[in-house]
Design a protein around this nucleic acid. Structure first.
Lengths: 335, 335
DNA sequence: AAAATAAATAATAACGATAACGGAGAGAGA
DNA sequence: TCTCTCTCCGTTATCGTTATTATTTATTTT
């Protein structure tokens, strides 16, 4: 691989001139410029960005901590992040944490060793630990989709989860449901709490209440949705509607309900959250909350880049709009 | 952020000694070691890896070109890649190409500017273009899942797609199907051709043939599967079984078939390919070919690392084993 | 105790690009 | 003609780390 010195030698100028030609051609006379560009062409020279980044002290890369890349919702968020990154000449280092703290520490550490200029956390844990935590104060970081519990110091790009869950509850109440089940996500997650709070608010407002026995923990996976539904169906008094906090669990739940010989929505209504592609291809198509996943990612990245650039982010807490998409998995209560 | 000089000053040794203490502690005396480590502790020093990489001329990163991160199959492959990468101290730069050549060029270019030490291509296009192509000869690259058309010079980690498709065909023939439809992937893809070849082989061996009218192009997406099924159903003589070259298209196809009032597998059998998580949660659960996605990724990364390390890869063409998973979307032909 | 050897540490030159600085030459104004 | 200004370009220090070479100190051998 040729370097700047070789190009300089070939075109008979100094390395500085080559550097200038490539970074700001106006600083170089047309004749020289041409000579240099010809040499660049001949050698196929491409500036060594590792060296450039080292020289500038920046990596032009950001780390994204994803609990699970295989989750279609996160995939879409990542796509948005990447697009915004590429637009500004940044690259994305993918950190699939699998929800494990030690993997989070590992990837977050990259921001402390100049391998990344900042990070986006899609989970709810503070990713630094031990001595790293002290040094991490100055690391640009933003939360997206989730929120770090007990820490309001980082910008967050999220949905108005509480309102969205309220919309789900209103929808179900309007359909006449009185006895509802919920399959949540991990209990530690702030957005899970937001959604639950919003959902329960509406129930209370309608003089209903959530039976503790109909509140099941899930893990945002297909199989945990199926398990959750199983639990709810075998309750003494099963619910007539189930709110699942993501679409995968909802799909798992529908699967399980049908397996038991019941039908959706005739016997039980099911509502999801996220509106992943698969949601419109289930049988019946899933009623769910549409999250603008790509935009969430894009906005998170833009916010992060603002911080990296040294400016205060325009808003500390970006809330994007959701939309209740009513399909066929929710219907009138038959009880 | 503190640097090695500061640690050296604080512990009263030279920078070289600090470097040695961290890279190979046996080279320094226990007392010195302790002094240095104490200074490291105090300052919270972490070596600047950007500088280290620059110094060593390697980035310890690889680029992965993915046609679509939101595809669950690729997500699993990526997870495998990442795991193998992390095991060996490498990081993964994600390049979501969206199948666009210019995005492939962009990301592939990172290997020419020392931003990456190699790349994994999950699509079937040669990712370098123009002058880059000449320089790219020495760039470590491996293909996974797909194969670059007309180029056998790069190692490939793939399934025995031909045999897998043969297994699908045998399964359908054994169920009595005589008239079959196929929803393929992009026509340019070598693996699509492999699968089609294998499928047709078995038909011929059974004295059947594939009606050209029942061969539809898809794009590996849910909606293209639905469109494909629509086309097949409105053929003059519709098929009694459809082979979809991935699960998403199969799920789209089932959706469309049911929408038309037909049932799977009673009226039409559907077989997919990949065995993504969703495949066991469809109604009916999908008969499909299980691809060891994570292992494909892991093996690809391991092969790439071998090449980066300078050794010839153990095998130029790694073929992993598949498994036909028979669920309920395929059944006896009723015609 | 002197010499030979081994161990530990210091000094310094890379790595490739950039930025700060300064010098040379051309053209303008006095 | 002299100076001033401006354009263009070369020289060199710099970034943080590691590898190489050189030097000092400690240990062993005679």
């Amino acid at each position: 691989m040729s370097n700047i010195r070789e190009v300089a030698r070939l075109s008979g100028v100094s390395v500085a001139t080559v550097s200038r030609t490539l970074k700001d051609p106006r600083l170089v006379s047309p004749q020289t410029r041409e000579r240099v560009l010809k040499a660049v062409e001949e050698t196929g020279y491409r500036p060594n960005l590792l060296a450039r980044n080292f020289s500038s002290g920046k990596s032009y890369a950001v780390v994204v901590l994803v609990p699970n890349v295989a989750n279609p919702f996160f995939s879409k968020v990542i796509r948005g992040i990447e697009q915004a990154a590429q637009d500004q000449g940044y690259s994305v280092l993918l950190g699939d944490t699998q929800g494990k703290p030690e993997r989070e520490h590992f990837y977050a550490g990259m921001a402390l060793t100049s391998q990344a200029d900042g990070l986006i956390q899609l989970d709810c844990r503070y990713p630094f630990a031990g001595k790293d935590a002290a040094l991490a104060a100055s690391v640009p970081m933003v939360n997206a989709c989730e929120r770090i519990a007990d820490d309001a110091s980082y910008p967050v790009v999220e949905l108005d989860n509480r309102s969205a869950a309220r919309a789900v509850a209103r929808h179900l109440v309007a359909l006449g449901h009185r006895r509802m089940g919920v399959i949540t996500g991990p209990a530690a997650s702030p957005i899970v709490r937001d959604r639950l709070a919003g959902f329960c608010e509406v129930l209370r407002e309608s003089n209903l209440e959530l039976d503790e026995a109909l509140l099941v923990n899930g893990e945002f996976t297909l199989s945990s949705g199926a398990r959750g539904a199983e639990t709810l169906l075998s309750a003494k008094r099963p619910p007539s509607a189930i709110f699942c906090m993501n679409d995968e669990m909802a799909i798992g739940a529908i699967h399980q309900i049908k397996k038991k010989g019941l039908s959706v929505p005739e016997d039980i209504s099911v509502v999801g959250f996220d509106n992943i592609e698969f949601a419109s291809f289930t049988d019946p198509p899933l009623t769910t909350i549409d999250q603008p996943a790509e935009e969430l990612g894009r906005r998170a990245m833009e916010t992060l880049l603002q911080i990296i650039a040294g400016s205060q982010p325009q808003e500390k807490r970006t809330k994007l709009s959701y939309e209740l998409v009513v399909r066929e998995s929710s219907g009138q209560c038959r009880d």
